[in-house]
Design a protein around this nucleic acid. Sequence first.
DNA 1: GATATATTCACCCTAAAGTATGAATATGTC
DNA 2: GACATATTCATACTTTAGGGTGAATATATC
Lengths: 107, 107
Amino acid sequence: MSAADRLDHTMLALADPTRRAILSRLAKGEARVTDLAAPFEISLNSVSKHIRILERAHLVTRRRLGREHFLSRNARALDEAAAWIDGLRHHWNQRLDRLERALERRS
Amino acid sequence: MSAADRLDHTMLALADPTRRAILSRLAKGEARVTDLAAPFEISLNSVSKHIRILERAHLVTRRRLGREHFLSRNARALDEAAAWIDGLRHHWNQRLDRLERALERRS
DNA sequence: GATATATTCACCCTAAAGTATGAATATGTC
DNA sequence: GACATATTCATACTTTAGGGTGAATATATC
């Protein structure tokens, strides 16, 4: 899978408030599907689907212990997304810097 | 519109390679819809819709001059997205730091 | 074995994304 | 006015997201 495909999945995974809340919750450490679902009014099934989207983006990883599935955070994909956005921000700013320097030379 | 809604729109807008390419292109400065569409094989109409999604996310702004529409980048939304991701990354890392310190105290 | 718990699988539905085509609108040029 | 250019509007189609319900699977407990 290409870097572009990975970014597609990561950004899409981040484009939902339930999934962002799940990621925040995982800062506290591993949690079961039921634990992650508790704060929300949606069905366990829906949460399970959100988790699958987070897994596809490699934002979380799963560890099975008996009948319980423990989810934990995975920093790699988040780092990639942050790197892409920061790269674009710097790209945009560099252009602005060049414009400013050009304007200074004319004045 | 809430901050969560804005993040939804921004992240979704960033979850497509065509739109990310358009944003990169805009680092070079303003461009018309036709200019932005040139590198892609999809129809002008499709590009127009992608631009609308970027506008909804406030990632680009539009300036009309006669029959031409000039699009330019808008840093604010990108800054918000970067801030959210960095906030989560630090949140995750702080937790890891605390775990490490706790392990050190036990050893 | 019987029952309860944790999670997913298999569908179904609705809304939206993503693409396309052709018409409409607005503006520029001759 | 006639014609070309730039962009959007209207519509249609396919795919996917996001939610639901109920059945199935796997595991734990009695």
